[in-house]
Design a protein around this nucleic acid. Structure first.
Lengths: 107, 107
DNA sequence: TAATTACATCGTAATATTGCAATAACAAAA
DNA sequence: TTTTGTTATTGCAATATTACGATGTAATTA
């Protein structure tokens, strides 16, 4: 026990849960907010802004990137992170669909 | 260490993360889907439908209820769960706002 | 070359989450 | 009263998450 039983649930539910998990940590939400605001989005800047250590910030960035919400580009020693707007819109649609179908089925 | 440092993040980020956490488990998403569909939403029925044990299902129901997404009403020995549509709409707005402001700030 | 800068990864500790069996609680029915 | 049906709670084991210090890597600068 102790592991989420993904295989018994509809694929749709697993997918939404995966996306929600990325947003389920306030540091990652704060990172997405900050990246939206800034131009040069370096890990170092982000970690100072959100006041978490560089390794911790880096880990969160990997989590967000893994699901596709972040693009990045190296320029010399610096890595610039940007939001993947296409993926962001995919998330937006999925959540919207979930909320709307759930709402419409309510008695 | 090992605890999420909520106090260093904006309230807004914590709030969204709290809501996302409820949706970050596929069983809870499946529960919300099923409750939307059915009329009589008993824990026992739900647990059979989503194929998790009754105690596990009950725990998930508590988590969803704690954040306000579920109402319930006892009728004899049975407890009927319903979605709290007002809260659902609050979530919907919050996520929508997050996605839209994040998108609009992207270069 | 040596020092610096920016980032990722590894290892580890603390805590949280997930799921179930066993059991308690409580109302309805027999 | 005893049994039955439905739900919640407790205790536990397995695993996941969160955070940081130490360290490795690679490019830039002195």
């Amino acid at each position: 026990m102790g592991v989420t039983k993904r295989h018994i649930h509809p694929m749709q539910a697993n997918k939404l849960a995966d996306y929600a998990k990325v947003l389920s940590n306030p540091a990652r939400v704060a990172i997405l907010n900050y990246i939206g605001d800034c131009e040069g989005c370096l890990c170092k800047d982000i970690s100072e802004k959100i006041r978490l250590s560089q390794p911790t910030t880096s880990q969160h960035l990997q989590v967000i990137k893994k699901i596709g919400l972040l693009k990045s580009k190296f320029e010399g020693k610096s890595q610039y992170y940007r939001i993947n707007v296409d993926k962001l819109n995919e998330l937006k649609s999925l959540f919207q669909e979930f909320f709307e179908t759930t709402e419409s089925k309510c008695c």
